[in-house]
């Protein structure tokens, strides 16, 4: 980020480093998002009383879990500052799904090789992104967009245009099994992931360094963190979790097709911002992102039960998103 030439639009200094210190602003965001979600559920039930039945709620939350995990990388990258953003996650998710399907091919024995391959490739993707962003100083928007293009082509080449393969039975079980109508295995995976993510962001050295670097490069550097390494790790994490999301998505869908991950890119940015993470960096939480994901997924599901056609759905989706964004993601006015 151009510390020397462009004045930063930093948020009030109370914006802190970890979830416990984040203070009223983010908690407010999550509270508002949660209330909005509840409002949407009620609205949905007005259109169709079955909207509130446990099975439906379970389905919506499951979708939200996938979206949330897909947005984890985005959360980390945005917190790391430096205009961080990762538009390549669509590509990583798609490639992850295609590769996992090919390697697993419906066998439980294929799980470990698939995981290794997926994680390895994710690290590679993160390294490529970091090389461009940190070494060549390409703006993250540009670099990750370019990498997304490359990943799209790699995906096609890997499967020769026709993706094949099925998830291993164990993975399909995790992806699809429902313990109770309202509780799927994926939801449990989501909760565990949230817990781990929270510990990772708030209680590890890396997590502290991440927030510090996002807040203020120079100060972080002086206190021992190394901004470049921290940011590189952020992109690597994003690549790895993106590929793993593809792996998971394969389990959820039980089949694979081209560009499975494309639909997640911009909504992940929206989820992150709605959840209270600021583009300026240094502030945010994964719990917020997850709540943002739930809100967006609920909205999308609500649109199904409303009696309108595709055009109407698109319009309402856009307008609702604008209203939600207007509600509490406003960048501070210059006066502050």
């Amino acid at each position: 980020m151009n510390q020397s030439t462009v004045p930063q639009l930093d948020l009030p200094p109370q914006g802190g480093r970890s979830a416990f210190h984040i203070g009223k602003l983010v908690r407010n965001n999550m509270f508002v998002a949660a209330s909005l979600t509840i409002a949407l559920f009620i609205a949905g039930s007005l259109f169709n009383p079955n909207f509130l039945n446990p099975q439906n709620i379970g389905s919506i939350f499951t979708l939200a879990v996938i979206m949330g995990i897909a947005s984890f990388g985005q959360t980390v990258v945005v917190i790391s500052g430096g205009d961080g953003i990762d538009l390549s996650i669509g590509g990583s998710i798609s490639l992850g799904a295609v590769m996992s399907a090919l390697v697993m091919n419906g066998q439980n024995s294929g799980i470990v090789p698939a995981l290794l391959l997926v994680i390895g490739t994710g690290i590679l993707i993160g390294l490529v992104n970091s090389a461009g962003i940190i070494l060549a100083k390409v703006p993250p928007l540009v670099m990750t967009m370019a990498v997304a293009n490359i990943l799209g082509i790699v995906q096609l080449i890997v499967c020769n245009g026709s993706p094949t393969g099925r998830p291993a039975p164990a993975i399909a079980y995790i992806g699809t099994h429902r313990i109770f109508p309202i509780l799927t295995v994926l939801m449990i995976v989501g909760v565990v992931f949230m817990f781990l993510a929270r510990r990772f962001l708030n209680n590890t050295t890396y997590g502290h360094q991440l927030f510090a670097v996002g807040n203020n490069d120079n100060a972080a550097f002086l206190s021992g963190a190394r901004p470049y390494i921290v940011r590189m790790m952020a992109y690597i994490l994003s690549g790895v979790v993106g590929m793993l999301t593809g792996f998971l998505l394969l389990g959820y869908n039980s089949f694979v097709f081209i560009n499975m991950g494309m639909a997640y890119v911009l909504p992940s940015v929206a989820a992150v911002v709605i959840g209270g993470t600021s583009f300026a960096g240094g502030k945010g939480s994964f719990s917020g992102t997850m709540v943002g994901a739930i809100l967006l997924t609920t909205l999308a599901s609500l649109l199904i039960v409303i009696n309108t056609d595709e055009a109407g759905r698109q319009i309402i989706n856009g307008v609702a998103l604008v209203l939600i964004l207007a509600l509490y993601t406003r960048e501070p006015s210059v006066r502050q």
Binding site: V269, A270, V273, G318, V319, V322, T329, E331
Partner: peptide, 14 residues
């Protein structure tokens, strides 16, 4: 004061 990336993403669908 919505970030333009997200705002135009929303208006795009509208």
């Amino acid at each position: 004061r919505i970030p333009s990336l997200l705002a135009t993403f929303a208006t795009m669908s509208v």
